[in-house]
C-alpha cells in the first residue's frame, strides 16, 4: 500500500557511497564530459579531506620505510649481530633482542613481509568473499542457498587443523603460500556481510530501473550496487588486511609460517614469548605493535573520509 508521506526535504538518507561513474565499455566514443567531471570532482574533494591525507600519509610512510629501511640497514634480521638486550642506540636504532638480533632490521624486513601477506592474503579473501557475497545476494534462490552453504562450511572448518595437515605435505613454505592459505580461509565473514548489504540494495527500485535499461546482471552488480557500497567494501578489505596480518602472526608463532622469515606479528609474539615486557625490553614489542596499529588505524581513518566523498549527500551537510 502506498504511503502518502514525503520525507522532510534535506533529511539525509542512509545510502552508501561509491566511486564515480566510469567510462562505459563498448562505447566507441571517449567518456563523455559528465564522467570526466565526476571523476575530477571526487579527486577534488579527496585532496581536501584531512582524514584521507593523514591516513594516506601514514600508510605511505610505512610503505616507504619497508622499501628504504632494508637498504639503509641490510643486516640479516635473524642473525645475532650485537650485544643482547640493548636499548636503542647509535649502532642499533631500535636496540637488540634477547639474542642480540637487530630489532630495526627485523622491523623493516618484517614490514615487507607484513604488507605482502596483508595485501595478498587480505586481497584474495576480499576478492573471493566479495564476489560470492554479490552473487548470492543478487541472485537469491537456489544459487544463494548453495553459496551460503559453502560459506558456512568454510567458516566452521578448523583452519589450524587443516593447516597442520597441509604443512606436513609441504617441505618449504613461502609468504605466497601463507598468504594463499590465509586468503582462502578468512573470506566467509566478508561474503556474509556483502551478501546482506547486496540483498538490501537489490530490492531498491534503482536496481529494477537498471534491469529495465537492459543492463546485464554483472554490470548491475559492479556498476550500480557495488559503488553504493564502496566504503563498505573498502572497510571489508581493511579488516581482512588487518586480520590477515594477525592470522599470519599466529601461524608464524607456531612455526607454520614461511620457513624462513620475519614479520611484525612474529616479532610481537617472540617478544611476549621471551618476556620482553617483564624484562623491560620495550623496544622489541612497541615498534611492531605501533606499526600494526598505525597502519590499520590510518586505513580506517581514510575510510571515514572516503565515506563522505562517495556519498554526495553527506557532502552537502
Amino acid at each position: 500500500m502506498s504511503v502518502h508521506v514525503e520525507a522532510p526535504r534535506g533529511t539525509p538518507g542512509a545510502h552508501g557511497p561509491g566511486p564515480e561513474a566510469v567510462a562505459r565499455p563498448g562505447e566507441p566514443v571517449a567518456p563523455g564530459p559528465a564522467a570526466v567531471r565526476q571523476r575530477r570532482e571526487v579527486l577534488y574533494f579527496a585532496m581536501r579531506d584531512r582524514r584521507i591525507i593523514l591516513g594516506a600519509a601514514v600508510v605511505l610512510f610505512f610503505v616507504l620505510m619497508s622499501i628504504i629501511g632494508p637498504l639503509l640497514d641490510p643486516t640479516d634480521p635473524q642473525a645475532f649481530v650485537g650485544p643482547t638486550g640493548q636499548a636503542p642506540n647509535a649502532d642499533f636504532w631500535f636496540g637488540t633482542t634477547t639474542f642480540g638480533q637487530d630489532v630495526f632490521a627485523q622491523f623493516v624486513f618484517g614490514l615487507q613481509a607484513t604488507f605482502l601477506v596483508g595485501l595478498l592474503g587480505g586481497g584474495l579473501a576480499a576478492i573471493v568473499g566479495i564476489t560470492i557475497g554479490f552473487v548470492a545476494g543478487y541472485r537469491g534462490g537456489v544459487v544463494d542457498e548453495v553459496l551460503s552453504m559453502i560459506t558456512n562450511v568454510v567458516l566452521v572448518i578448523p583452519t589450524l587443523a587443516v593447516l597442520v595437515v597441509i604443512a606436513a605435505f609441504l617441505s618449504a613454505r613461502g609468504v605466497i603460500i601463507e598468504a594463499a592459505f590465509v586468503g582462502l580461509t578468512s573470506w566467509p565473514w566478508a561474503a556474509r556481510a556483502v551478501r546482506a548489504q547486496t540483498f538490501s540494495l537489490r530490492s531498491r527500485e534503482f536496481v529494477d530501473l537498471a534491469r529495465l535499461s537492459g543492463l546485464s546482471s554483472w554490470r548491475i552488480i559492479f556498476r550500480e550496487i557495488a559503488p553504493n557500497m564502496g566504503s563498505y567494501l573498502f572497510m571489508t578489505f581493511i579488516l581482512l588486511f588487518g586480520g590477515a596480518i594477525l592470522i599470519a602472526a599466529t601461524l608464524d608463532f607456531i612455526g607454520l609460517g614461511p620457513t624462513d622469515g620475519i614479520s611484525l606479528g612474529l616479532m610481537m609474539n617472540n617478544a611476549v614469548l621471551w618476556s620482553a615486557l617483564q624484562l623491560g625490553l620495550w623496544w622489541w614489542f612497541i615498534p611492531p605493535g605501533l606499526g600494526i596499529t598505525a597502519i590499520v588505524g590510518a586505513l580506517y581513518v581514510m575510510n571515514v573520509g572516503l565515506d563522505e566523498i562517495f556519498n554526495p549527500k553527506l557532502r552537502d551537510m
Binding site: 520525507a7 557511497p17 561513474a21 527500485e205 534503482f206 559503488p227 553504493n228 564502496g230 562517495f310
Partner: peptide, 24 residues
C-alpha cells in the same frame, strides 16, 4: 515506480539514468 528517491542510485547524478539507456 512509486518512490522517486529510491528509483535513483543516490551516488550518481540524476542523469545517470539517461546514461544507462545510452550505453545500451
Amino acid at each position: 515506480f512509486q518512490d522517486p528517491f529510491s528509483s535513483y542510485n543516490p551516488i550518481f547524478k540524476a542523469d545517470h539514468v539517461f546514461g544507462m539507456i545510452r550505453s545500451v
